[in-house]
Deep mutational scan, measured.
Amino acid sequence: KYKEAKESFQRFLENHEKMTSTTRYKKAEQMFGEMEVWNAISERDRLEIYEDVL
């Protein structure tokens, strides 16, 4: 289930129109921090996936 959450988060970042190569992690956290997809995984994993996607 956790792996699915990580994959969902990656797809979310890859497909969200507001995500560009210039979007900083903290800005994304402000935009999406309340969303379930954002909070479903640990911050360490979130940051790792974020850096992989951008």
Rank of each mutant, 00 (worst) to 15 (best):
T22I: 13
K18L: 14
V37E: 14
A5Q: 11
I49H: 02
W38M: 04
T20W: 07
H16R: 04
F12N: 09
E51H: 15
R11C: 07
L47Q: 13
E7H: 07
V37L: 08
R44K: 15
Y2L: 08
D45E: 05
E14P: 03
L13M: 08
S42P: 06
R24Q: 11
D45T: 07
L47C: 06
S8L: 11
T22E: 13
F32P: 05
I41F: 04
N39Q: 10
R46M: 00
T20Y: 05
Y50G: 08
Y2K: 09
F12W: 02
V53G: 05
A5D: 13
K1E: 01
A28Q: 01
K3W: 00
Y25H: 00
E34T: 13
W38G: 11
N39M: 01
F32D: 08
E51I: 02
K3S: 04
K1T: 05
Y2A: 04
E36D: 13
T23E: 10
G33E: 05
Y50I: 01
Y50T: 10
E29R: 04
H16E: 13
K18A: 14
M35Q: 11
T22F: 08
K3C: 05
S8F: 05
Q10L: 09
S8Q: 14
G33Q: 06
Q30V: 12
Q30N: 01
K27R: 12
Q30I: 07
A5N: 13
M19K: 06
N39V: 00
K1S: 04
E14H: 08
S8T: 11
F12Y: 10
I49C: 07
E51G: 12
L47P: 08
Y2E: 12
E29I: 00
V53P: 09
F32K: 07
I41R: 07
W38F: 01
L47G: 08
K27T: 13
K27E: 15
D52L: 10
E14K: 07
Y2N: 12
S21N: 14
F9T: 06
E7T: 08
L47V: 14
A5W: 02
E34A: 11
E43M: 02
F9L: 10
E34R: 12
K6E: 04
F12I: 03
S42Y: 01
E17V: 13
S21Q: 14
A28S: 02
E4I: 03
R11G: 07
K6G: 03
M31A: 03
K26Q: 14
L54S: 03
M19D: 04
G33D: 01
N39T: 07
I41C: 06
M35I: 03
I41K: 07
V37R: 00
I49E: 06
T22M: 11
T20C: 12
T22G: 13
W38P: 09
D45Q: 00
E4W: 03
Y2V: 05
M19F: 12
F9C: 02
R24T: 15
V53Y: 15
T22N: 11
R46K: 04
I41A: 07
S42W: 00
L47H: 10
Y50E: 07
L13V: 09
E14N: 02
K27V: 15
I49Y: 01
Q10G: 08
M19Q: 06
S21I: 02
D52P: 01
M31R: 04
S21Y: 09
Q30L: 06
T22Q: 14
K1D: 01
E29S: 03
E14R: 11
F9S: 07
H16D: 10
A40K: 10
K18W: 10
Y50M: 09
E36A: 12
E36S: 10
G33A: 06
H16W: 01
K27A: 15
R24F: 07
T23Y: 00
